[in-house]
Design a protein around this nucleic acid. Structure first.
Lengths: 225, 225
DNA sequence: AATGACAATATTGTTGACGATATTGTTAAA
DNA sequence: TTTAACAATATCGTCAACAATATTGTCATT
């Protein structure tokens, strides 16, 4: 039994576990922006103590995911359209840099793994399995950043991504978007394999910008319900 | 009396105040990497309650500024050479983008303010006042990002900067570095005033990279003591 | 029925006490 | 003198009770 499991067994989830749980709820839009996070509810659903729940709130507040008001507790913070734009611009720059670095610096194993992930994702389009695609996609982006030797950037991008991913879950991934993403990935992989860092960076920027556009369209569609 | 002051008066500093205080201590290297942050000490020095101090720790941990180990509490987290490299690369990209956006989007007042700040900083070189220079410099960078309409990026860059600024304080700012920075700023201002966003972005990247080199030199010098 | 004052409840903020763990100091044996 | 075992202290993690505030419900008045 590892440490985490041991801790879990003797005294319920840790504050980090609870924070993760909340993050997941937000990403899957079981918790929507503006919604209040009542301590007792979280306690019931996670089994954590009140103290740990509050610690989790603090961490999430520092990440900008929730907002804490005096005597009103924590609530899910939504991002405005302009904030989303800035976040995606930042991502485009940072991931673009990673694509460039990966082209130059990555080891042989990471290159192979990245190619294999891309292939698996292509298969997901045919078999129409958006959840698997979503998971592989996260893996792919993470591997690209870490393989480029930029773990700090990876962490940063993760933080940037959380507050806007509440729409990109499960059934929302339609066939068109999947095909577009696969096409983008192929361009990036080609550039990497050709050893062309400039092209890899440019292609990655385009890819992230595509994601932004797709999200904007989605939000407009939801808004016009 | 504003809200913050009122709160302060009736019940001591808030957890955000304490977090700020700790951040300042770290930046001014009164707290150095590896050093443990003993709760009682912080309580004595800030007047906050233990609960609030711990909340502050959680926030700082989420920002990556301190590390929390079980039963050993919080300690200041130092950045490795490679982490510093990644942080500066991210800054170069993000601030470069802001310089570009400022050139295109900034209002007339912000442009004027930015130019005035740059002038004041030039005077600081002659009068040899590094603390004032440092303050104005922060102002200048902040204004550039906010004037570009990228407040989220500004916040992000602030977080990126904190863990590495412990050396760039007070007397470390030598005349050479000041002159170099002023020269960089002048190039950036020229590009902005000429309405050349590409040049502004490029000049800003160079400027940040200069800052990185300077810091590296400093660390090597300190290390060889 | 609509509105405002007031009470009841729900929720959060704060404090203090207690147990758990790490760190330091002490002593005795090799 | 050095080291290992043990005790003492310092520090941290957790919890439960209480205080402060917000929210909701009720009732009388218009």
């Amino acid at each position: 039994m590892n440490d985490a499991a041991a801790t879990l067994a003797r005294s319920g989830p840790t504050s980090a576990n609870i924070a993760d749980w909340i993050r997941t709820q937000i990403r899957s839009s079981r918790l929507v922006p503006g919604q209040r996070l009542v301590e007792v509810d979280i306690i019931r659903q996670t089994g954590g103590s009140r103290f740990k729940v509050r610690e989790a709130f603090q961490r999430l507040a520092a990440e900008g995911l929730v907002e804490i008001e005096e005597f009103r507790g924590a609530s899910v913070r939504g991002a405005s359209e302009d904030e989303v734009r800035q976040l995606y611009q930042a991502r485009a720059l940072l991931e673009g840099m990673c694509a460039r670095d990966f082209t130059v610096r990555a080891g042989a194993e990471d290159r192979k793994k990245l190619a294999r992930l891309a292939l698996e994702m292509e298969e997901c389009v045919d078999s129409n399995s958006p959840e698997k695609f979503s998971r592989l996609n996260s893996e792919w982006h993470k591997l690209l950043m870490r393989g480029a030797g930029n773990a700090v950037i990876e962490d940063l991008v993760k933080r940037l991504s959380t507050p806007v991913h509440h729409l990109l879950f499960g059934t929302f991934y339609k066939g068109d978007r999947l095909r577009e993403a696969v096409e983008d990935h192929r361009l990036i992989m080609d550039a990497i394999e050709a050893g062309d860092p400039e092209a890899a960076e440019a292609a990655m920027r385009v890819h992230v910008e595509h994601g932004h556009r797709f999200l904007s369209k989605l939000e407009r569609a939801v808004h016009n319900d």
